[in-house]
Design a protein around this nucleic acid. Structure first.
Lengths: 204, 204
DNA sequence: AAAAATACTGAATATATGTACAGTATAATA
DNA sequence: TATTATACTGTACATATATTCAGTATTTTT
């Protein structure tokens, strides 16, 4: 996915807002009206650029034939993968790791999220995270102390509280007195932050 | 909402399937093609009927200007109320008790549900239910031992494990050693089961 | 029994809409 | 320095599309 320009972002936003409001995509003229363009070709060229960059699809000849590609549709509903046990070293979102998918609005968890992680074990039980709960994970490396992070250490994936003690020392803290803190010296050990928890889903 | 005929249902289904597949609504001609009609007016009259009955809205003059009205959109979502502190004696779903609503797919929690209850206190923390968590509540009095129930006792609403000891004795059991079991003698006390928990939603 | 709703075909048409073409100008890239 | 991408205005036009009108027939409602 190439980079989007600010004007193209405005057009993309316009399409999504229009879709949410009316239930169907805008025409070139609608976009011009919304964004103040005076020629339908202004919208046309932006649409073609957005299509070229993969943000939208356009069905040739069809009126209002614009569809926002799912991964960029912040309003739409999406299928989110549920990741179970992640095999050592394999990419998290590889197909073989996807147990199933859940249909859920993209905006369901405030900051958006990328997948559900099925929790194993009770190391976070005092934080209200039980076995088989689904954690909504947002892929990011931007984590603060106190965040619940999904971390990969050696070849194991674990969910813990994040706590940076110093520039070199990070502690991963469980929420269960039966488990010990994991102290990581970043100089000698590799710590990969997969993302952080932005929510939780439990189905009885 | 008036009754829908089988042909109108086919047209409504067609619209929703088309929308899901392409991202935008069908034209009259598209509907004809899908359903085998030979005149665009066949689709037109069905659309008008569906509009009259409230299932869809049509924007006059706009191409593909069909939108499926939310409450009839089987792919769509619904607004579910979030109930906070329920005042003594007032009906649970009275408007003044609704803090806000959450947009969520109907089928999100397996057996369906009626509202979200915002949890207060930590009496169920060992069951992974923390303060401010949202419990998906299904209104029912059909509860089994071990179910997490929403019970009203005197004028207080509480969330506990349900445990019927005998025909007259019910225990409401917290999941926190700091709290005591509540033993209810149905002969002398009134116990009203509001519903049971069918899921949980937490947003960080 | 009459009226209204349902369920179509078929043709006609005004207009809504995508899209191409001709320009202008600036910024980014090779 | 030439080229490509971005970011527009403005005009034009073929066609995609909604929508009306004229029929026919069956079913449901009043």
């Amino acid at each position: 996915m190439k980079e989007i320009t600010s004007q193209q972002q405005r057009v993309l936003d316009c399409i999504q807002i229009y879709l949410k409001k009316t239930g169907f995509p805008p025409t070139r003229a609608d976009i011009c009206k919304e964004l103040g363009f005076k020629s339908p070709n202004s919208a046309e060229t932006h649409l073609r650029a957005l299509e070229k960059k993969g943000f939208i699809s356009i069905e040739s000849g069809a009126s209002r034939g614009i569809s926002v590609n799912d991964q960029n549709n912040s309003f739409g509903r999406d299928e989110y993968p549920v990741i179970g046990l992640v095999a050592a070293g394999s990419p998290t979102l590889a197909e073989e790791n996807i147990e199933r998918t859940i249909n859920c609005p993209k905006s369901f968890f405030e900051s958006g999220f990328d997948y559900f992680l099925k929790v194993r074990g009770l190391s976070m039980k005092d934080a209200g995270i039980m076995e088989d709960d689904l954690i909504a994970v947002k892929k990011t490396t931007d984590v603060k102390n106190g965040d619940i992070v999904i971390a990969r250490l050696d070849d194991e994936v674990t969910v813990k509280f994040f706590n940076r003690k110093s520039s070199n020392i990070v502690e991963l803290e469980p929420a269960n007195e039966d488990f010990e803190n994991i102290v990581i010296n970043l100089e000698s050990e590799q710590l990969h932050i997969e993302g952080k928890s932005v929510g939780l889903l439990r189905r009885n």
